[in-house]
């Protein structure tokens, strides 16, 4: 028994040695495999959610994402919808948004990029307030607070 324990211990130690030696050369492929695991995606509360609609204007694209209400187990009552303007974004943005795809406008948004000023005009009572309005590397992003 004592010998078995010694052999098992040393074998495990040598397996660990091999693991460390292959870890760094194989890191890229191990990471790529790990990235494919089902939970390896950024929570929509951070990523902003999937793009639901894409409105294209001259030189500028507006991505309207799916509303995010994600909680730990069930949907939360409060959430947000993220809007991303990409490309050649004008200095003053005025857009009417239908985030729930019911063919009725839910809110109007006005962004003055130079003044860093954003004004929200809610139409739908579920639209509450602006959470974030910020310049980004791709243009401008806004998160609007919603309730269910």
């Amino acid at each position: 028994m004592k010998k078995v324990k010694i052999i098992a211990g040393i074998t495990w130690a040598f397996i660990c040695l091999i693991l460390i030696i292959i870890l760094f050369p194989g890191l890229n492929s191990f990471s790529a495999s790990a990235a494919k695991l089902p939970f390896m995606k950024i929570n929509p509360n951070y990523s902003g959610g999937e793009v639901a609609q894409q409105l294209i204007a001259t030189g500028c694209t507006l991505d309207i994402r799916k509303p995010v209400f994600d909680g730990l187990i069930k949907k939360r009552n409060k959430g947000f919808v993220q809007l991303d303007w990409r490309g050649n974004v004008p200095d003053k943005i005025v857009d009417t948004i239908d985030y729930d795809l019911d063919n009725k406008p839910d809110f109007c948004i006005f962004v003055d990029r130079d003044q860093s000023k954003t004004v929200l005009y809610p139409i739908n009572s579920k639209v509450r307030d602006i959470i974030i309005s910020t310049p980004t590397s791709y243009g401008w992003a806004v998160r609007v607070e919603l309730i269910k």
């Binding site: 870890l23 890191l27 990235a35 939970f39 390896m40 950024i42 929509p44 951070y46 990523s47 994600d70």
Partner: peptide
């Protein structure tokens, strides 16, 4: 519970990505 990572980082690629750090 949510099948997602609660961190505003990059899963793969870029500086200090999540997949590499978890594997390491």
């Amino acid at each position: 519970f949510t099948n997602s990572i609660i961190f505003p980082g990059s899963i793969i690629g870029g500086f200090a990505n999540i997949a590499s750090m978890v594997v390491l």
